[in-house]
């Protein structure tokens, strides 16, 4: 392994890491929104729509991201929707992550005891007020551990973005290996940059989990 090679490649990897992070963060934000909406639809058993949500969740959870990306990237232009690779990457991540986030939030919502809802009602709160002040705050904190696990999972999944020619970390590494055979240095940088992205998230995750366990909800 040659240090000068690493130093030379560093800016390329930095740029790729920023792209990976940018797409990852935007994709995850959309995944959170989709997940929250789907979880609420299921929790409140909204007629008809909840069956569509159930279909979406099964579809999204039981197909690989790579295939979802291909569908979006090659399929959408076929039906006349033009788009670019970045938007496709974000859409793919949001499509995949939405279902995982929905499951995390749904388990949190279902863990809120009925008596909490009834207490709120008996204080005269409307269903909206009850959702906003009583159900959601409790549901969100119980769903924190699976939520953080999903964030890490989705950030890792960004490594398949290279398949739709996004110049992300994986793409950059493969490119450099293909062009100059600098396999060791490229793989080393690839691992290091993914660690730089994921370790803080992982640490934040265990911190939040510890805080929640300490807070010890309930009795």
């Amino acid at each position: 392994m040659r240090i000068d090679v690493i130093v030379r490649y560093l800016p390329l990897f930095k740029k790729a890491a920023l792209l990976t992070l940018k797409l990852g963060i935007i994709g995850i934000i959309f995944a959170i929104l989709i997940g929250l909406i789907c979880a609420l639809i299921q929790y409140y058993k909204v007629p008809i729509i909840r069956h569509l949500v159930a279909v979406y969740i099964e579809l999204s959870r039981n197909t690989p991201l790579l295939i979802q990306l291909f569908f979006i990237y090659y399929g959408l232009p076929k039906i006349g929707i033009s788009t670019n690779a970045e938007i496709c990457g974000i859409a793919g991540l949001a499509f995949l992550g939405g279902s995982y986030m929905a499951e995390a939030f749904r388990s949190g919502l279902e863990a809120v005891p009925d008596i909490q809802v009834e207490s709120a009602y008996s204080l005269g709160m409307s269903p909206m007020q009850t959702a906003f002040y009583i159900i959601l705050p409790q549901a969100i904190s119980t769903s924190m551990p699976p939520f953080m696990a999903n964030v890490i999972f989705l950030l890792k999944e960004t490594s398949v973005f290279s398949a739709i020619s996004l110049m992300d970390l994986m793409f950059t590494a493969k490119d450099l290996i293909g062009l100059y055979y600098k396999t060791t240095e490229s793989l080393f940088l690839l691992v290091v940059f993914y660690l730089i992205i994921l370790l803080p998230v992982s640490l934040l995750g265990s911190y939040i989990e510890r805080r929640l366990r300490y807070a010890g909800f309930g009795s």
Partner: peptide
């Protein structure tokens, strides 16, 4: 109407958060 009727349940039902 519910505002005019207060209720306390058997299980402790304070809002934990």
């Amino acid at each position: 109407l519910r505002q005019k009727v207060g209720m306390v349940f058997q299980s402790y039902d304070l809002f934990p958060h």
